[in-house]
């Protein structure tokens, strides 16, 4: 009996202190280490951005931020975990463009509305890249060839339903063309196939082909962005060519929707200071990643715009469930 009473007492005590702790924590957040969940494997692009951010933001928060990789399901596992985290600001996450695409595939329990965006850190547009030995010197020639040979042009992407597949599909729908979409296990194998002339083009980001473009083995025909890429100013945007397609992958910090406003504020301010550090920008530049900071509210607008676009597109091409 004594033991039983002791257990009850302990439980009550623990519960009370836990409730009090939450109250205290909300007031003077953060009081303990923050976990930054990355839905992709260590060493990949998203992970590198997260680690660079964690490095920078640690100088602007009283507690440290540690990166935890939760991989699987093309990002669905990690993103679900961010969504389902207790909204106390101690588990924040790297939100990627998959927040807006996975819900349409019917493989995720979340939608874009389940997250409060804190800061966008990086964005990479899609680009149409061909082998340097290919006959097409401009995007017009390439598209004209695709028009004459419907279904013959094979575009490699990083997986069905993944962002670069959707980019190629968006181009196909907007310009009324028919491509053969070949999914690979990530962007790198697709680039390898292009180097070996096994496919005609890839729709991955300029960063993912930059070393080959520099070496003269691949050629970027166009980027799907609002402005030309700083690294490859010679490649035109599709917009310039009259095709209104902009598709980009992006990465940024998000928290669960119900996170209290003061915590969101703290994180936003710290993130803003972190991205202003030259060290952070240098780090991104070294990794061939573009700095594309947006503050919470603007990030939210961009996210909603993408959510809407992919909802329409994925229904159109029959990927939605």
């Amino acid at each position: 009996m004594k033991g039983y009473r002791f257990v009850t007492g302990a439980v009550v005590g623990a519960l009370t202190s836990a409730t009090m702790m939450v109250a205290v924590q909300a007031a003077e957040y953060p009081t303990k280490a923050i976990e930054l969940i990355v839905p992709y494997a260590a060493g990949g692009g998203t992970d590198l951005v997260a680690r660079a951010y964690a490095d920078a933001v640690n100088r602007h928060l009283p507690q440290s931020v540690g990166v935890v990789n939760k991989t699987g399901g093309g990002g669905a596992v990690g993103l679900s975990e961010i969504m389902a985290a207790r909204p106390d600001g101690y588990r924040i996450g790297m939100g990627t463009v998959e927040i807006t695409t996975l819900p349409n595939l019917g493989v995720a329990r979340f939608t874009a509305d389940d997250f409060t965006p804190i800061a966008r850190l990086n964005a990479e547009p899609s680009a149409i890249t061909v082998n340097a030995g290919a006959p097409w010197k401009t995007i017009e020639e390439f598209l004209a060839y695709a028009k004459e040979n419907p279904g013959k042009v094979r575009i490699g992407n990083s997986g069905t339903g993944a962002i670069w597949h959707l980019a190629a599909e968006a181009l196909a729908t907007k310009s009324g063309l028919k491509f053969s979409h070949i999914p690979y296990d990530g962007a790198n194998p697709a680039v390898t196939a292009l180097l070996g002339n096994h496919i005609e083009a890839v729709s991955v980001s300029p960063a993912e082909v930059s070393s080959h473009v520099a070496a003269g083995t691949l050629r970027i025909l166009a980027v799907m962005d609002d402005q030309r890429s700083k690294a490859f100013p010679d490649a035109p945007t599709l917009k310039e060519k009259g095709i209104d397609v902009t598709v980009a992958t992006w990465r940024g910090i998000v928290v669960p929707k119900k996170t209290p406003a003061n915590i969101v504020e703290t994180l936003r301010t710290a993130s803003k200071k972190a991205v202003e550090e030259q060290g952070f920008r240098d780090q991104l530049a070294k990794m061939n990643l573009s700095y594309a900071y947006l503050d919470g509210p603007e990030y939210k607008v961009a996210m909603e715009k993408d959510a809407e676009m992919f909802k329409v597109l994925m229904k159109q091409i029959g990927l939605s469930k």
Binding site: N188, S211, A214, A215, K286, M287
Partner: peptide
């Protein structure tokens, strides 16, 4: 070639890039 032959070298590719060495 800048093509990783397996999963380990895929991560190493990132390490090289970070050091400002473009494999290829």
């Amino acid at each position: 070639l800048g093509i990783p032959g397996d999963a380990v070298t895929a991560v190493m590719l990132g390490a090289l890039t970070l050091q400002g060495l473009q494999p290829g």
